[in-house]
Design a binder for these strands. Structure first.
Lengths: 232, 232
DNA sequence: CTAATAATTTAGTCTGGCATAAATTTTTCT
DNA sequence: AGAAAAATTTATGCCAGACTAAATTATTAG
């Protein structure tokens, strides 16, 4: 059986469903069949079938026509996958020199194959990192995850200094562009202008003082922490 | 489709079949259905079906009731898997501190998931090793493999100095025991006695001069290179 | 409040990869 | 050479996980 050849885990499909549902829950609320289908690029009827199996296994609760919610076991399994994914991404970038825009895909495959033991060895080799290369928090082995209180760059007021903290790892072209601007988690900047009507944001780097215009859509994907300090 | 989610490869099953057939060919001659079934712990009829699919994909030639032979493409794919497996084992032991008796299982899963690029990054990080931790030669990325000319410890004449070069990675208990004796690839010893009728072999380590009795079955699994030098 | 639209579920099918049981072919032994 | 034994293949069936088409339920608009 497939599941048996895998380390303390469920099938690849199951793990992908759990991760997607976790993600939908934590950023939207209800995870409906259609949302899951869109997230996994799978036809809705296939999702219905899988949802049935998963709720029979006690990983989620399903209210027909209403949506789905992870049980405690489902949440635990999902967070385990998130940890694996983020530890892998961190390891690949810092120990094997992979670019931050390429590690997502690789981690997406490895997260289903690596043993828990190896993940912990990687974590130790990295010094138990708390964030992955894109700034996303890494759940602990016990399943605790930090929920950082971030705002997107479009919401940072003019004149305020903020720090980039997190960029989604899912669009590697975006990541390449962001890196080319010199923006990475930890980089501080001041918002010097914001155009209305979903217009661009202008920032000035604290180090280097260089100015940069950033389109609204991109700015919205950049999660920042405000450094509570006004600038003259 | 499954294959599409995998890096430049075939399905996990296909890869396992190719590896097993490669192994049978290089150590026995013909690979018959039953041999493959035994090697993979699968029922013979299942092998018949898979062999059919594989020969339709041009990975092997099948003569009914006679056996199977890898085509050029099949051999290339098999050697790619052998390289992946052995690079992984080497990486896990030297960079992540895994024991040599535990890496086989882990590599067995990862070899199906890792991208070619990552394998090459690992190889570079390791300095393009030629042997894995068990002494097995690592094929090059181009598919060349060294065929070392080794004899099992039972065949080393008394009074001759030899060097352990290779131990199969498949039995982890055996590996643990071998390591506990201080035997690893590269360790030199002299055979001081050989009992007839499949009896034990006695060796004396060159470094340390300690003597050790080794049962016939174990000695047969230890592949050695004779160091052409008589000892007084 | 009913009709139209959208979302979801059911029904039925497909594929890969495995299994068992029965039929077939090859080998071996007398 | 002919019969028994061994190996292999064919015939069938199962399961997970995907699909399409059709039926059902919810939601929205007139």
């Amino acid at each position: 059986m497939i599941a048996d050849s895998r380390p303390a885990g469920y099938s690849k499909s199951t793990e992908d469903y759990l991760k997607a549902i976790y993600w939908l829950e934590s950023s939207g609320g209800a995870a409906q069949t259609g949302d899951i289908a869109a997230a996994l690029d799978i036809a809705p009827p296939s999702v219905s079938g899988m949802v049935k199996r998963l709720s029979e296994s006690g990983l989620l609760e399903h209210v027909p026509y209403r949506g789905v919610q992870l049980t405690r076991a489902g949440r635990r399994a999902a967070l385990r996958m998130v940890r694996r994914h983020r530890i892998l991404e961190t390891y690949l970038t810092s120990k094997l020199g992979c670019d931050w825009d390429s590690v997502h895909e690789e981690a997406e495959r490895l997260e289903h194959a690596v043993s828990d033991e190896l993940i912990e060895r990687m974590a130790i080799a990295l010094g138990n990192p708390r964030y992955d290369p894109h700034g996303a928090p890494i759940p602990t082995a016990e399943g605790e995850i930090e929920e950082p209180d971030l705002v997107s760059m479009t919401e940072v007021p003019v004149g305020i200094i903020a720090e980039l903290r997190m960029v989604s790892d899912k669009d590697s072209e975006r990541l390449r562009y962001v890196a080319s601007l010199g923006l990475r988690p930890g980089v501080a900047f001041e918002v010097t202008a914001r155009q209305p009507f979903r217009g661009p944001v202008t920032i000035r780097f604290v180090r280097g003082r260089k100015e940069q215009v950033i389109g609204h859509e991109l700015a919205q994907a950049l999660q920042c922490m405000i450094v509570q300090r006004e600038v003259g």
